[in-house]
Every structure is written in structure tokens, then in C-alpha cells.
């Protein structure tokens, strides 16, 4: 196991950035583990949420942003709801995810691709077009068998459309995404 030099490895810019973007104070965390205890996704995480909190508190930027856990948090808010120190842990997870994206981490490819496909669908159509989203996801992941078995079950129920529902203002929505891209590039 690697020996960590606590002062040399402490990335203070990272700590202050997380605090600023999340509006949370990391030193409030006393590592009771209640977030981890309640997190339904702990079984899937490579680093438990309380340890993400600890690593963030100690400024271990790379280790945190590399974590797969960031991509598996569903923002179910059980950590936030039960934190004895009233830390909005879910918001910190969200902010770490934003930072991971900006720094080019993929985390879990299928998850990132799914979220990207979803947003692509919203960008083009103004609303989510489920078949289009699935097609986009499959073309990017090669997982052509994804939920294929569900087809016969839901097709006859009229729950699936093969054309996006038209809405007037979809260009307005597209523009939101375009402006966001420009702002982020700044």
C-alpha cells in the first residue's frame, strides 16, 4: 500500500473548490459513516461515500475524481437526509462528478454514455425520445442486446413511439445546450 504524505498530498485548491461549488464545509464531517450505512449503492462503489468524504477532506484529488462511485450515485439523498452534521453529501457527490467530467474522467463508461445519450436526446428534441436515446446509447456502447427482451412486452401497450413527440420550442432547448457549451469553454 502506498504511504500518503498528508501535507504534501493535500490539494488545497481542490478542497476549496469543492466547498465553493457545493456550499458545504468539509470539516463538519466527523466520519461517523452514517452516509455509507444508508447508501443503497455502497455494494457497487469502489470507494464508500464516507471515504469519498474523507479523501476530499484530506485533499486527495486524483483518488477522488478517479473513483467509480461518483458515477454510481443516484442522488437518492439518503446520505443528506441522515447526516448528523447536516452536510449535503449528495450535493458534494454531484459537484465531484462535475469536476471529474471537466477533468476528463469517464468513470463508468456505460453510465456516462447513457447520461450523454439522454442529454443528446433532450438537446435535439426538447424532450426525451426514449427509442432515440436507446439507439444512441447502443451505437456508442455496442450493447445491442440492451433491454431487447422488453420490446415484445411493451410494444403492444403503446408505450413506445418511433418518432419523437414534436414540440414548438425545441430550438430554445437546443440553444440552452449551445450556450452552456460556450460558457463551459470559457
Amino acid at each position: 500500500m502506498k504511504v500518503i504524505n498528508i501535507n504534501l498530498s493535500y490539494n488545497s485548491d481542490f478542497v476549496s473548490q469543492v466547498e465553493e461549488e457545493s456550499g458545504q464545509k468539509l470539516n463538519l464531517c466527523y466520519q461517523c459513516g452514517k452516509c455509507t450505512a444508508g447508501c443503497p449503492y455502497t455494494a457497487e462503489y469502489d470507494i464508500s461515500v464516507s471515504q469519498i468524504m474523507r479523501l476530499t477532506q484530506t485533499g486527495q484529488k486524483d483518488k477522488v475524481l478517479q473513483s467509480k462511485s461518483l458515477w454510481l450515485c443516484a442522488t437518492c439523498e439518503s446520505c443528506t437526509a441522515r447526516c448528523p452534521n447536516k452536510i449535503d453529501v449528495a450535493r458534494i457527490m454531484d459537484v465531484l462528478r462535475h469536476m471529474a467530467r471537466r477533468e476528463g474522467y469517464t468513470g463508468i463508461r456505460t453510465v456516462k454514455t447513457f447520461w450523454d445519450s439522454f442529454l443528446n436526446s433532450v438537446r435535439s428534441n426538447g424532450r426525451v425520445f426514449e427509442v432515440g436515446l436507446l439507439a444512441n446509447y447502443i451505437s456508442h456502447t455496442g450493447r445491442f442486446w440492451t433491454d431487447i427482451g422488453l420490446g415484445p412486452k411493451i410494444l403492444p401497450k403503446g408505450k413506445i413511439h418511433f418518432k419523437p413527440v414534436e414540440m414548438k420550442g425545441k430550438k430554445e432547448v437546443t440553444k440552452i445546450f449551445m450556450r452552456f457549451k460556450q460558457e463551459s469553454a470559457k
Partner: peptide
């Protein structure tokens, strides 16, 4: 002429994008 709220994927990218939607 409602449009998508951005759901989970938008807020995992950025809070201003999510809120704009």
C-alpha cells in the same frame, strides 16, 4: 410547450444547465 427538466443526467453535468432546463 413544456420541455424536459433535464432529470438526473443534467444535474450530474452541471447545476446551471439543470436549472436552465
Amino acid at each position: 410547450d413544456w420541455s424536459c427538466c433535464g432529470s438526473t443526467p443534467a444535474h450530474t453535468v452541471d447545476h446551471s444547465l439543470s436549472s436552465a432546463l
